[in-house]
Nucleic acid binder design. Structure first.
Lengths: 144, 144
DNA sequence: AGTATCAGTGAGACCTAGTATCATAACAAG
DNA sequence: CTTGTTATGATACTAGGTCTCACTGATACT
C-alpha cells in the first residue's frame, strides 16, 4: 500500500471525506522529504484554494500525518510524521531535520508537575544547531 | 533605584540613547506582571509609532530586559525577565506564567550533541498546563 | 426518484504581526 | 556651525493565516 493510500485510509477512519482537493494536498505534502511551509504546498497544489490548503493541513496535523516544526525565527513549517510524539533537531545551516526518537522531556514533565502543582498538558521543544556536514572541522576545533 | 531607572541604565551601558519614546515603551512593558503582546504595548504607548515599539522590543530582548514567551497557538508574547536563560510553564487557562529556575535541558543538549554529532546552538522549550488554581479538585480526581 | 441536509469548496475580504522605506528630527563630535 | 549618526513616525507593504459566503456534490431520509 502506498503512503498516499495509507494516509487516505487514516482520514477515512476519522470520518473525513476524500476529495480531489484533499488528495492533491496530501500528494504535495508527501512529495517532501524534509520540512516545508504551507506556502510551498499552496504553490504545488495551485488548483486548490488557499483556505482549503490550510484546512487540510490542520486535518493532517490532527490526524498525526504531519507534525509542526518551529523554526528558530518563529516560522512554522511541517514535516511528514512517521512516529508518535517526538521532537526535532534542526540544522540552521542546511535545514536538515533529525527526529529525536522519543519525547525526551517525559520525565521532566512529571518532575515539574510534582514540583509546581501544574497539570502539564503539552510542551514545545525544538533544538537548533549545525549538523556534522555543515560544521567544518576548523570551526569545531576553534570552539572553546 | 526604580526598575525603570535600572532598565535605562542597562540600555545606556549598551550605548543606546534614552529617548522619550523608549521610556514610554519601557514603562508600558514594566507595567505588566505577566506576559503581554507587542500589540498591548502599542495600545498603551499610543503616542509611539508602531515601528518604534517593535524596534524597542528587539532592543529590550537583546538586552535581556524581556524574554519571549511562545504561546501554545504559536503566538509570541513577552515577559519582563528577571533571570538569565530559563523556560516557562504557562497556564493555558489563566495565562499565569511560572519561570523555571534554570534551563532544564542543559544536560540533554550535551547528550544530544554527543549522540547526533550536531553542534547544538539553541532551543525552544515551553510547557503548557493548568495551574493549581485553575484545575478544580473534581477534574484532578477524574484524571486516570 | 425527490428532497433535505451537511461536509467541503474557492474566491476574496479581512486580520495580525511584523518589516521596509523614507523624509525628518535630535543629538554628538569635530 | 557643520557634519555624521542615531532615532523617529507615517505609511506602504508583506507573510501567514482566518472568516464569510454562496455554491457544490455526496449522503440520508421518505
Amino acid at each position: 500500500m502506498s503512503e498516499l493510500e495509507s494516509v487516505i485510509r487514516r482520514l477515512e477512519e476519522l470520518d473525513h471525506r476524500i476529495t480531489p482537493s484533499r488528495v492533491a494536498v496530501i500528494a504535495a505534502v508527501l512529495s517532501h522529504s524534509g520540512h516545508f511551509s504551507v506556502e510551498d504546498i499552496i504553490r504545488q497544489a495551485r488548483a486548490v484554494g488557499r483556505a482549503t490548503v490550510f484546512r487540510t493541513m490542520r486535518l493532517l496535523t490532527d490526524a498525526d500525518v504531519v507534525c509542526r516544526v518551529l523554526l528558530e525565527d518563529g516560522s512554522l513549517h511541517y514535516r511528514v510524521s512517521r512516529r508518535g510524539h517526538h521532537h526535532h533537531l534542526v540544522c540552521v545551516s542546511c535545514g536538515n531535520v533529525q527526529d529525536l526518537d522519543e519525547c525526551v522531556v517525559g520525565d521532566l514533565v512529571r518532575e515539574l508537575a510534582a514540583a509546581t502543582e501544574y497539570e502539564i498538558e503539552g510542551h514545545w521543544l525544538e533544538f537548533y544547531g549545525r549538523c556534522s556536514t555543515c560544521r567544518s572541522p576548523v570551526a569545531v576545533a576553534a570552539r572553546p
